[in-house]
Each structure stands twice: as C-alpha cells, then as structure tokens.
C-alpha cells in the first residue's frame, strides 16, 4: 500500500466535505484494501466512514426495508425481517465470500466490489479498467470467468457480487449523498456496462457516498431461489448465478424477476424475459423460453462460451426451484 492519510469523520456532511479526487471512503475494507495491496488503487486519503450514522435496518412506510450502508453482510443476511421477507437476498449474501468477510463487508461496499478479472488485478499487465487506453488482454487471454453479455471491445469483465444480483432482482433503490446533495438511483441504473469507459463501474459521481439501500415491500418470499454455480462448493466467485423470483397464481405466473450474476459487468436483467413469463404456467417450457430472451445476444470468448449454456440451465433450475418454493 502507498502511504496515505486517514480521517475518521462522524457526520455524513463532514465525510463528504473531506473528499478529494484521490480520496476513497472505507468501511469494511475487504475489497479496497485487497486492491490497495495489489497497487490497483492508490488513494492519497482514506475516509473511514464506519463511525457515520449509517447503521441499522428499518421498515419503511411503504412496507419495505431501508438498509443502512454500513450494515454488514452477515447482519443483513441474518436479520429476521430479511430472512422472513427477502429470503432471496439472504441466500445470495450467504452464497458469497466467507463468514469472516461477510462479518466485515458492508452493504454499500458490496455494491462497489470490483471485478475479479485476472488482468485487472495484475498491475504488470494492460487493462482498460485499471489504466484506460492500455488494452484488454482478457479478450484473447484467459477469459473463462468473463462476460457473455453486455461486454465491449474495451472490457469483458464481470461484476463479482452475489448480493447485488438479488438486489437487482428485487428492484432495490440505492440512496446516495454527495456534494450536490441526496439522490436515489434505481438498482438497475446503479452499475454500468463497460462500453468505452470500463474504468467506471457505476454511476456514482466523485464524493458521492452510498447511505442506504431500500427494498420495496415485495420480497417474493414464497417463490424465490438464488442459485450459484461455481468451481468449488464454497468460497468461490460465481461462474453463473441466478436470482429467480416468481409470484404464482395457482400454477400460473403472475409476476417474475430474473437476474444473472457472473455473466456481465452488472447484474443482468431484461424486462422482456420477465414479461415473457407472466401468464405462462410455471414449467420447463416457459422457463426455457424466458432463458432464451434473457440470454439474447450472448456471446463468449475462447474459454467461456460454456457459460451461455450453463446460464440457460441455471436459469431453468433456479426458476424451477423458485416455483417449488423450496429453500435450497
């Protein structure tokens, strides 16, 4: 790590006013310090936000939940209201990382996790995300873990979070505060596709701080499933993950959500795929058709084309599990 100065504000406005272009906010630190040790990120100042009043989980007037940005992943997953009303979110969180990391990692920080692309992490190589304009060796290199959807010539990295996949499916809203004041960002607008600017993972502006994530009232608790497919049974990033949620009216689907992880630069959703499920009877035919729509335009690289088929199978399995209402 490079030498940096350290500040520990106790008020949100104080934290924001301390922010300089080469500052970083730190909460759990589980990804930021990892990146700093690899010299991928070199902040001149760390602003410790752990003493800000961003703790706690509260029910909102609309019947949803407002989750403070500093709530740890484990506290969130094990919160009684989350377990009861948002089991999809609890499962997704518990599928990620390890117990130790979940105890430290914060809700806000989870949204800001950076890709596990080998080239991004190895600062001896080129990487458009790390050093814009240097190129993307992953395209013709080791790309087994890379994107099959929404990638660009500049970048084929994927977002590594599990929690975000569930939050995307649940239509969460991100609350942020910055030098220009407060605003809310729909979850699906929070992360970006790489396009020409892969160095930007999300739509936050300089100095903006995530203060909370809000979940709407409906958590699809009766029929949801998070399926994570990975190379070992635990403590591994997803090759493909699926957050599937259904509302069933008898055997007929009245509402559906599907989000994919491990396949794109952001949690992958398509309204058309979900619309295609509505009114259908829950079963393989409808699930396969929805998978077709969700994976439309998917294309792989030398080592990862299997992910397209894997994603299709995982979508069908997750929807099947969700329809059954089984807790995996």
């Amino acid at each position: 790590m490079n030498p940096f100065s350290y500040a520990r504000p106790t008020r949100i406005d104080e934290a924001i006013s301390l922010f300089q272009p080469d500052s970083r906010y730190i909460a759990g630190g589980t990804n930021l310090l990892d990146l700093m040790k690899e010299n991928v990120v070199r902040p001149a100042q760390l602003i410790d936000i752990t003493r800000l009043p961003l703790q706690g989980i509260e029910e909102t007037a609309e019947g949803g939940l407002r989750i403070g940005a500093l709530v740890s992943n484990s506290d969130l997953a094990w919160h009684p209201l989350v377990e009861r009303h948002y089991p999809l979110l609890a499962q997704a969180i518990l599928a990620g990382a390890s117990a130790q990391l979940r105890n430290m990692a914060s809700t806000g920080g989870n949204l800001l996790q950076r890709t596990r692309c080998y080239y991004f992490y190895d600062s001896t190589t080129a990487c458009n995300k790390r050093e814009p304009g240097t190129g993307c060796p992953a395209r013709s290199g080791l790309n087994r873990i890379h994107a099959i959807l929404g990638h660009s010539d500049a970048c084929i990295a994927v977002h590594p979070s599990d929690m975000c996949v569930a939050m995307a499916a649940l239509d969460a809203v991100v609350h942020v505060q910055g030098p220009q004041g407060e605003r809310q960002i729909a979850f699906n607008d929070f992360h970006r596709l790489p396009g020409e600017k892969p160095e930007r993972d999300n739509n936050l502006t300089d100095g903006e701080l995530i203060t909370a994530v809000e979940l709407p009232a409906s958590g699809f608790a009766e029929h949801s499933a998070y399926l994570k497919v990975r190379d070992r049974a635990s403590y591994a990033f997803a090759l493909v993950s699926v957050a599937a949620a259904l509302k069933l009216d008898g055997g007929t689907i009245s509402a559906a959500r599907i989000a994919l992880g491990g396949v794109a630069h952001k949690p992958w959703r398509r309204a058309e795929a979900e619309a295609a499920l509505v009114g259908q009877s829950a079963g393989d035919a409808a699930f396969n058709a929805a998978a077709d729509v969700l994976l439309q335009g998917a294309s792989g690289f030398e080592h990862n084309t299997f992910k397209i088929d894997l994603a299709r199978r995982a979508i069908v399995r997750a929807l099947t599990d969700a329809a059954k209402g089984v807790a995996p």
């Binding site: 759990g28 630190g29 589980t30 410790d48 752990t50 130790q100 430290m104």
Partner: peptide, 11 residues
C-alpha cells in the same frame, strides 16, 4: 470472526 489482513488497525 474477521480476516485481520483486510482491515486497518487504525479503524
């Protein structure tokens, strides 16, 4: 339980 390698003492 936490990973002590990924947190700063000063925090």
């Amino acid at each position: 339980r936490i990973n002590s390698c990924l947190t700063l003492a000063v925090m």
